[in-house]
Design a protein around this nucleic acid. Structure first.
Lengths: 189, 189
DNA sequence: GTCTATAATTCGATAGAC
DNA sequence: GTCTATCGAATTATAGAC
């Protein structure tokens, strides 16, 4: 069969995203991607040159992080939780990045960059510029940890939660990280 | 040089843990492990049979989770935070499991099993048997998320925190997950 | 116990016919 | 645009000499 260039390219990208998201970078082969897309492996090389370039295309994300400056301070946790959950469930490239960022330094840098440039400014508007990076980092740890246990490791109790249940648990946590004063109670003295 | 069987085996295991923890399962080669240990690659096969068996030995963990039943309920978050942080910084096998569990199903099952059998009972003693699995899963999501951002992705603000700073942030979060009533505030009505 | 040699696969990548 | 054939490299694993 003869397809258009755009169709073939899109089919390859879709299959690549699924494979990279499911198996990571190393375990994924050009051959398996081609088989999933129903085309010849040589076509993958023709359109993307190398495996690395194909990965870069599959993992490319253009996050349009909304402006949260209008959200009431007391609801920022709930809004952020919902936003991230929707993002994870609809954007396969995010799961690609998380799965591969664990063993691929370039992908790890992409993850760091995303949270620094997207979540950072939002947090900076809520906390002082001194504490903002730490608070954003901790919020990222909870967001990524939930994605890890829910979508990657599939810890049963976490994977079984509904979207709204997750938001109801996560919202107060993010609220605390981003807005509440940090007053560590003294440990066992 | 001629070493004892036990020494050689220990040297291989140590090198294997470092490589698996740094690069994951696929990217790690028997040759690189042997080079790190300063021995011949054939010795690795001689002692462990296959790469998979070597990995199983390197990722084997015998977690001696302490009994937390004597800890005051109000301090369980702080105690657990400190316990896990010490665990992560001293037990390289845990980082091996996290790094490989993302692409290896067997390793993922090990992670699930560890949290189910170790954290589960502790939480069951604090929360009702109905909510306990969810609460344990959410606590696991924060613990794993922190390990992910601190040790694997090395998000700068999180990686730079001192042990005590991490505990001071994490303690109230785990406390909430494990002990506080779950009363989701109504979202935007 | 240690090492050389090599078998058997697998994969990314290229060349070129149609 | 599509596919066959194949190269070259890297890897796990085995056989066997010393």
């Amino acid at each position: 069969m003869r397809r258009s260039s755009a169709d073939t390219k899109a089919a390859i990208l879709s299959a690549a995203r699924e494979r990279f998201a499911a198996d990571g970078y190393e375990k994924t082969t050009i051959r398996s991607i081609a088989a999933d897309a129903g085309i010849d492996p040589a076509m993958v090389m023709r359109y993307f040159g190398t495996k690395e370039k194909l990965f870069a295309a599959a993992a490319h994300i253009d996050l349009k992080f909304p402006d949260f400056s209008a959200v009431p301070r007391a609801q920022i946790g709930a809004v952020l939780s919902g936003h991230f959950l929707d993002l994870w469930e609809n954007n396969e490239a995010l799961q690609v990045l998380l799965r591969t960022g664990v063993t691929n330094e370039a992908a790890a840098e992409r993850v760091r960059s995303i949270f620094a440039t997207q979540l950072g400014p939002t947090v900076a508007a809520l906390a002082g510029p001194e504490e903002a990076p730490v608070r954003a980092g901790l919020a990222a740890s909870q967001i990524l940890g939930l994605a890890l246990t829910r979508y990657i490791l599939r810890l049963p109790p976490v994977a079984a939660l509904s979207r709204d249940e997750v938001v109801s648990w996560l919202a107060p946590i993010l609220q605390r990280y981003l807005c509440d004063p940090h007053t560590p109670e003294p440990l066992t003295p």
